[in-house]
Design a protein around this nucleic acid. Structure first.
Lengths: 217, 217
DNA sequence: CCGAAACTGTACCCGTGGTACAGCGCCGGC
DNA sequence: GCCGGCGCTGTACCACGGGTACAGTTTCGG
């Protein structure tokens, strides 16, 4: 046990590797989504994490390295979530169109079940402060959006091969429409403080896909 | 002419009234869209405007008042642009559905004709830094998004009355879809540095409207 | 020529990012 | 059982930016 000048007693039972670092990332992610990267001070993070400034700079060379670690972790988790979502949808149906429609429904449900509204998207937050970041980080962000496009385009190509669309359609545009509605939906949800808007927009995208590809009546 | 809080009307003297103030707003808008409000320093604005810090605080009580003036001006201009767009579309066709489709085409053309990509949306930028701003500013932002919803909902209600939709549809969701695709489209365009994405998303929205309401084939 | 609008100049406070570097407790491995 | 390195702490210091305070100056219209 160690007592700081302010009287706070710290436990110092040799912390596990990456434990404090992960706590810093968690705290930073919340703060950045709330008020942006520039307005998130190192000081507030170290107070919340119960460490000193030196401790912060032990884990991250500078604020830019924090930004990079934050985005990398965010994009990795994002991939895992979507893999899981489309994986589960694939177990439920054989046809690519119906798999896609199921995945969109599951996605909308997942977003609707969040307590309160969606906290926001790091990629969008970074996008609106992009001159603050290195080219490397901007490239990382672009790669993330392109991964979304590639994923959705893949599903859409399978669908279009089996179900000719009712009107001519550019599959890249249709793939980007997913990312666009998610990003825009998060923004509109946040501004209006209504968490229901985002899942409804996903379902509107689902309707568009149905109208384009589904042959019925 | 300026009306003071006590009602006295002041006349312009020295430099033309609002000239420097407008220049500060122009510079601030560019900077905020590029790197966010928190990262935009008063210092860079006064250097670019060729005035001193005292000059800045003559025009704005603090940075918050700059933020408010910036957003107010932005939302006002936005209204004018959309009024003009839908006004021109109304001159070209009598049917509300075709007017709407024409307006969306004009909108997409306008966005495609911008040199480079769309510079960004202040409302979205503020949204991702919203704890920095006063409740008043957040309310202003929400009112702006609600104005978009009301405008589009009005057109859609007229359309739905004449052209029953092919599938059941929530007009509020369909109205929000416009704002959502614009905000998301700006974000994706920026991240991928491809100004063509935003207008294509508008046209995808147009396709969705056509599939929903247009009876042909 | 007067008064007010639209500034300038100076001085000062605090918070934040960032640098530099010495030291110290704890744990695993030899 | 001791030793090295990991994961920090402590201290000191710098520049910049937001913000406050307030007196003084220029310019222009009436």
């Amino acid at each position: 046990m160690l007592e700081r000048t302010d009287g706070v007693v710290l436990e110092r039972a040799g912390r596990k590797r990456g434990e404090t670092r992960d706590r810093l990332l968690d705290l930073a992610e919340r703060a950045v989504l709330e008020k942006g990267f520039a307005a998130t001070s190192i000081d507030e993070l170290i107070v919340a994490a119960g460490i000193t400034k030196s401790g912060f700079f032990y884990h991250f060379r500078d604020k830019g390295e924090l930004a990079k670690a934050l985005l990398t972790r965010y994009l990795e988790r994002d991939e895992v979530i979507l893999d899981d979502l489309f994986g589960r949808a694939a177990e439920l149906h054989e046809d690519p169109l119906h798999r896609f429609l199921i995945a969109l429904k599951l996605f909308a449900e997942m977003l609707a079940d969040l307590p309160g509204a969606h906290p926001g998207c790091l990629a969008a937050s970074y996008c609106y402060q992009d001159t603050l970041f290195s080219q490397e980080i901007r490239d990382l962000n672009a790669a993330g959006v392109r991964a979304w496009r590639a994923r959705f385009r893949g599903h859409l190509a399978e669908i279009a091969a089996l179900h000719p669309p009712r009107i001519p359609v550019d599959l890249d545009v249709l793939a980007d429409m997913a990312a666009t509605l998610v990003e825009g939906g998060i923004m509109v949800s946040r501004v209006l403080r209504d968490g229901a808007i985002l899942p409804k927009q996903i379902l509107a995208y689902r309707d568009h896909i149905r109208l384009l590809f589904l042959r019925e009546h």
